[in-house]
Design a protein around this nucleic acid. Structure first.
Lengths: 252, 252
DNA sequence: CGCACACTTGAGTAATGTCAAAGAGTGTGG
DNA sequence: CCACACTCTTTGACATTACTCAAGTGTGCG
């Protein structure tokens, strides 16, 4: 059921690079540039960035980075879904965020990664060596401003999620999760949107601070109440979006 | 019991400003400059900053800003403790952080405040009008870098707190809270540090995603186990810091 | 076709929340 | 200075949500 979601290989990239007389770079044919941090860059800075970029695929379930490892690479997600998480010594896990197309992972990077990252689905990434990236950052106020903006959004999102983790009920948590997915740009914004759940129930539970059984039961109950329709276990139609939004907001 | 912690008035500031031939500014005699974001600024930028600053006290329990209000002012805490929080419609509250001396509130400010802020104790602040601050920020890469750094730290702290809220037990949460306070710069770093709790049990509970009763019971149990000594209800001696740290870390 | 894996459902439990009352510290007014 | 009132904290008894353990169901893949 964990669908592979294969992507077209991009062997044509190299050719294109040669044809235009420029160094081949994954950026030349990048699908997500328009929604990524790099979109903010001017031509000159952008070519410096594309000069240091390389690309790398990851299989589903593959670890991308681990908390505590030296932060030598910064990543941008080109396709697929990545989870960021922290763990306790006995294995309890808290997922602190999911990254999708165009999302950047590397903002809070000190010299070591503060969170682990694992591919939820097969993932394509472009990556930048830390040192070279930092040098570019030092020269480019535009880039710095953009990353600052991303970091600020991250803080707001994190605080939002703290409210969810600390104060919402299981029902409210799951409703928040589903409606947040429906609000994502890649999801059709219809009155009854249909959301993909590329992550397992375990991952949803680890994101919401619940157990897998509670997530499953809560979704089943939404189904019984006619709020959602489970097309498959990883594809959910939000039949009553407004009602779900009310539940998510913690309305009495 | 919520002690007032009175501060010396600073009427002498104006005199000092005149004596040195510069415009009077709270910055001239600021106690916390060395630990605040403004410390990063060069002389010229610093004088621009001190030209737009004003200072304002708040009483304990007084609201400083409210979520959703237009973000017209940015604050720096000079003394006292401030809580940042979000609420659900029915009043459930999640405190997302406490600010102390030298902490800046205004990093994630879009055009509206994303969280509410309230004085936990009497607080002295210095404040900057948003527009003027933004203009200074646009001219000062140093300032921007510094705020970026603060924002990144904020992200790391927020993720840490997500792990606590989503996956730690009440016992682990309270131990984490106490040991985190002990790690603050203003707390003596002895083997058995004594921490002040300027906030009420309700506020501790709202920070840890618990109820006031659970917080109280957990602290009482720590006391019964000899891990802490309650000197008063808002002053706790961490008698067995290492044991508390182990509990906080979620060691088996 | 059947194994493997993820998901669902059920029954019982435990941690934490709720409701209630008593205790302790602080400030006020007689 | 003491008594009272107020608030915050602590403690107790009970309720409930969500967790744990366990069995069963469904779906995809070899």
């Amino acid at each position: 059921m964990r669908e592979p979601k294969l992507h077209q290989p991009r062997n044509i990239d190299t050719l294109l690079g040669h044809r235009t007389g420029r160094t081949a770079s994954p950026c030349d044919t990048c699908d997500v540039r328009s929604i990524s941090f790099c979109d903010a860059l001017e031509d000159q800075e952008f070519s410096r960035l594309s000069a240091i970029v390389s690309s790398r695929p990851f299989e589903g379930r593959q670890t991308i980075v681990q908390e505590g490892d030296p932060a030598e690479w910064l990543f941008n997600v080109v396709s697929g879904t990545v989870k960021l998480y922290r763990t306790l010594p006995d294995g309890r896990t808290q997922i602190v965020g999911f990254l999708g197309e165009g999302d950047f992972m590397g903002i809070p990077a000190a010299t070591e990664y503060a969170v682990s990252a694992e591919a939820v689905t097969p993932v394509e990434t472009c990556l930048f060596p830390r040192r070279a990236f930092d040098r570019l950052l030092a020269d480019s106020p535009t880039l710095e401003r953009r990353l600052f903006e991303l970091a600020r959004n991250e803080v707001v999102a994190a605080r939002d999620h703290m409210l969810l983790l600390g104060r919402k009920t299981a029902r409210e948590k799951v409703a928040s999760f589903l409606t947040a997915l429906a609000a994502r740009p890649q999801c059709a914004h219809t009155p009854t949107p249909c959301v993909d759940l590329p992550m397992t129930r375990t991952e949803i539970a680890d994101y919401l601070g619940l157990t897998i059984e509670t997530v499953s039961r809560t979704i089943s109950r939404f189904r019984d109440e006619g709020l959602v329709v489970l097309q498959t276990s990883d594809r959910v139609l939000l039949a009553k979006l407004d009602a779900l939004r009310d539940i998510a907001a913690g309305a009495d």
